[in-house]
Structures are given as structure tokens and as C-alpha cells.
Simulated scan of single mutants.
Amino acid sequence: MIYLIMGVSGSGKTTIGERLAKRLGCQFSDADQFHSEANRKKMAEGTPLNDDDRWPWLDAIRAAMQEAHHNRQTHVFACSALKKQYRERLQTATEGIVLVFLNGPAEVLSERILNRRGHFFDPRLLQSQIDTLEPPSEQEALLIDVRQSPDEIIDVILQASERRQ
């Protein structure tokens, strides 16, 4: 099974993705590792990415998802996947991807971003991500409030994915 944890910066994609993968005993891949050096530089300078920057990045993530599926591996991916067309592109990797949308109030997300260290994302870009976000519907994704504890969030994800099988 492939899990895709999505949301804006500060929503906890990496934390939840890593912990979910550990609980499942599988691999975790953060979308940040698929960014080109040019994309990383733009974001570090506070310049939002455009769709031309994102397509090759999304295609690299989709290829990794396809490979994991082909190898029959459970794998957790974390990616902002802000627009519906981005999610649709990623979901062409395979059928049955469990899409999880982590969402919360802007002030909670902003506080989280300001408190993390060693990340290339400029906190000023949060509003551009919120403005770009096309939230998924309940039919498209599992919608989760980030104000729950990581363990509670993972429990919800696992319970929902069990019901899907």
C-alpha cells in the first residue's frame, strides 16, 4: 500500500510520515528529497515555486511511488500536493493510494515553521502555500486536524486504511 501524506508546510507531513512508516515497518520518502537544487535555492530565498518548477519534482515522486508499488512495497510519501492537479498526477502512479490531508489553523502552522531548525523553507512562503492550496474533499482524502497528537493522527490513518481494504 502507498500512503501520501499531504498539506502545507508546518502541517507535520514529515513527522507523521516518519512515524507512520516506523509503525508499518516500511520506507518513508519526503518530497523535499526529490527537489532540484534550483528549487531548493528558490525556496531558501523566499521565492515561491511555480508549476514549471513543480512538474519535474512531482514526476520524480510519482516514479518513486510507481517503483514501490511495482516492488509490492508498503511505502509512505510526504508531499505538499497543494493543487488537485498535482494530486491527480501523483495518483496516476497506482490505484489505491491512501491520501491523508493534514490541516490546521494558519497560526498553528506558522508557529511550527518558526520553531523548526535546519530546514530550507522560508517561513514567509506559508501564506503563498495557503493561497495555492486546493483542499481535497472527504471523498478524495482522509482529512485530519493537526492539533491532535502524532499518535492519535497515526491511529486515525491506520483505522481508515483498514476500512478501505
Rank of each mutant, 00 (worst) to 15 (best):
D51K: 01
D51Q: 02
D51A: 07
D52R: 15
D53S: 09
D53M: 00
D53L: 06
W55T: 06
P56W: 15
P56S: 05
P56T: 09
L58Y: 04
D59I: 03
D59R: 09
D59W: 04
A60L: 12
A63E: 10
A63K: 05
A63G: 03
A64H: 10
A68N: 06
A68M: 09
H69L: 01
H70R: 04
H70F: 00
N71C: 05
N71D: 09
Q73E: 15
Q73W: 15
T74N: 15
H75M: 08
V76P: 06
F77K: 05
F77A: 05
F77R: 07
A78F: 07
S80G: 07
A81H: 03
L82W: 00
K83H: 06
K83P: 03
K84I: 00
K84S: 01
Q85D: 00
Q85S: 02
R87Y: 01
E88W: 05
E88L: 10
R89Q: 13
L90T: 13
Q91K: 09
G96K: 10
I97G: 05
V98A: 14
L99S: 10
V100S: 11
L102G: 02
N103Y: 13
G104D: 03
G104E: 07
P105R: 13
P105Y: 06
V108L: 09
S110L: 04
E111M: 15
E111P: 00
R112C: 10
I113Y: 14
L114K: 15
N115L: 13
R117K: 15
G118Q: 01
G118E: 01
H119C: 07
F120T: 14
F121R: 08
F121G: 09
F121T: 10
P123T: 11
